[in-house]
Computed example of a mutant assay.
Amino acid sequence: MQFVPGAPMNISAAPPGWQVTFTTGTKAWTEPIIGWAVVATATDGGAIDSDLAPVVLDSEGGYIEPLSSYLDSKRASVSQPVNIKYSIEYRNPNA
C-alpha cells in the first residue's frame, strides 16, 4: 500500500476532554479533538514518513479531519490570507 502525504495511515479515538482552540486577529473558536492520527508525510528524499496529528471535529461542517487539513480548509475558505494560531489542551470533563 502506498500513502500520499497528508493521508491518515491510522486513527485512534481520543478520550473526552481534548480540544484545540484557534485564534485569528478577529476571531477565536474551539473544536473537540476526537482522535489522534498517524499521518503520512514526505521526506526531502521523496520517501514517506509519518507524524502524529490530532483529528478535529469540524462543528460547522460536521466532518472529521487531521489538524493540518482542517487548517488548510479554513484558510482556503476566506478571501484574504489569514494567520490561524492554535493551542491544544486537555480539560478534564469531570472537573
Rank of each mutant, 00 (worst) to 15 (best):
I88S: 09
S12M: 10
N94L: 11
Q80E: 06
P8I: 00
S12T: 09
M1G: 15
S68E: 07
T21V: 15
D51E: 14
A95T: 10
V56Q: 03
L71V: 11
T26W: 13
L71T: 01
A47Q: 13
M9K: 04
S87E: 12
T24R: 04
A42F: 08
E60P: 03
G46K: 01
L71E: 03
K74G: 05
P5Q: 05
A95E: 15
A28E: 15
G25H: 10
S79A: 11
P15C: 13
L57N: 06
P8H: 00
N94D: 11
V38S: 12
G46F: 05
N10Q: 07
D51R: 14
V4E: 01
E60L: 11
S79P: 09
V78F: 13
L52D: 06
S77I: 07
P16C: 08
I48P: 02
V78C: 10
P15G: 09
A37D: 01
A28S: 14
P15Q: 14
M9A: 09
W18G: 07
V39K: 00
K74I: 08
W18D: 12
G62K: 02
A76K: 04
K74L: 12
A53H: 04
S79D: 15
A76I: 02
T30R: 05
A40S: 02
D49G: 15
G17P: 07
P8N: 01
E31A: 07
L67T: 00
G45P: 07
P93W: 13
E89N: 11
T41F: 07
Y86G: 05
P32C: 03
T24F: 12
W29L: 08
I64V: 13
A40W: 01
E60Y: 14
Y90F: 11
E89S: 12
P54L: 02
I34K: 07
V78T: 13
G45C: 08
A42D: 09
P54Y: 05
G25Y: 12
P5G: 03
E60W: 07
R91A: 14
V39A: 00
T23D: 10
I11F: 04
I34V: 09
S50V: 02
P15M: 15
P81C: 10
I88Q: 11
D49Y: 09
A7D: 09
K74W: 10
S77M: 07
P93E: 11
R91G: 07
N10D: 14
F22N: 02
L71Q: 03
L57K: 03
Q80N: 13
D72P: 06
S12E: 15
D49S: 13
G6T: 01
V4C: 00
I33Y: 09
P54K: 04
D58L: 05
F22C: 03
T43K: 08
G45H: 13
S50L: 06
S79L: 12
G62N: 03
G62D: 04
